Amino acid sequence: MPLPDTMYCAQQINIPPELPDILKNFTKGAIRTQPKDLLLWSAAYFSALSKGECLPVKDRLEMNVATQKTDTGLTPGLLKTLHKQLSLGQTCSKEELQKKWLGLCLPKEQLESMLALGGFTSEIKWLEFFALGCSSLGGTLMSSMKFACEILTEDEEGGPARIPFSTFVKLYTFLANLDGDIPQDYIDNFLSSLQPVMELQHGMIKPLDFIHRGDMSSTD
């Protein structure tokens, strides 16, 4: 027996008052992030929203990426989003990283390559993976560290892009050791050469302090 047709009137449809703002924020987030797979990204977005987690949304639109026709993989904006999502603890699980990575529609092959290169297993030190992400963006050690400063800084856009020297040391040391061609005494001497600058800047370091000092980075 067929079910009777159900008639609805405007009074029967209850629309939550917060729905317009939810849809507005979702639309803005999609425009800024430009996900390759809108359906996959939307599922990640509303899953994070329902759990009160950091949303998979870029701070701003990356115009040079949005106008490209091919998948460019990781970008500074996407790496910054991943950092916001996964940096609350010092470590994250491989499963959680995979979930956030795929939620941003990033290539699975790129993630697998980075995990293999860094020798990461089930539990991942986030700053080390972040450093590897900067390396995939930068190409050379110094340009990788410049990306790290620009992504991690709390300075306003266009500012000096300062980060704590202690954070710089962790990122630089990991990448330099991963390179394998940079002698330990060079690493130690390079970091020592930045100490006076760091002390003048109350424990902070910026790209202009180191970008022209790391000649050995050409061996990346």
Score class of each variant (00 low, 15 high):
residue 47 S to A: 15
residue 200 L to S: 15
residue 152 L to T: 07
residue 220 D to Q: 13
residue 130 F to D: 08
residue 60 R to P: 01
residue 2 P to K: 12
residue 87 S to T: 01
residue 182 I to D: 03
residue 102 L to M: 10
residue 10 A to E: 07
residue 6 T to N: 13
residue 120 F to E: 00
residue 153 T to R: 06
residue 108 K to M: 05
residue 85 Q to T: 04
residue 102 L to T: 11
residue 199 E to I: 12
residue 192 S to V: 10
residue 9 C to G: 00
residue 87 S to G: 12
residue 218 S to W: 11
residue 37 D to A: 11
residue 65 V to C: 10
residue 98 Q to W: 09
residue 17 P to V: 13
residue 181 D to M: 14
residue 24 K to A: 13
residue 97 L to K: 05
residue 174 F to Y: 15
residue 49 L to F: 13
residue 191 L to Q: 10
residue 154 E to P: 02
residue 175 L to R: 03
residue 198 M to H: 10
residue 74 L to P: 07
residue 54 C to W: 02
residue 107 P to N: 04
residue 163 I to V: 13
residue 117 L to H: 06
residue 136 S to E: 07
residue 191 L to C: 10
residue 193 S to G: 15
residue 28 K to S: 08
residue 84 K to H: 09
residue 205 I to A: 02
residue 73 G to A: 11
residue 12 Q to F: 02
residue 90 Q to E: 11
residue 196 P to G: 08
residue 208 L to P: 05
residue 209 D to W: 04
residue 187 I to Y: 06
residue 179 D to Q: 12
residue 217 S to R: 00
residue 4 P to T: 09
residue 207 P to V: 05
residue 60 R to Q: 06
residue 119 G to Y: 03
residue 143 S to W: 10
residue 80 K to I: 00
residue 134 C to M: 05
residue 185 D to Y: 15
residue 162 R to Y: 06
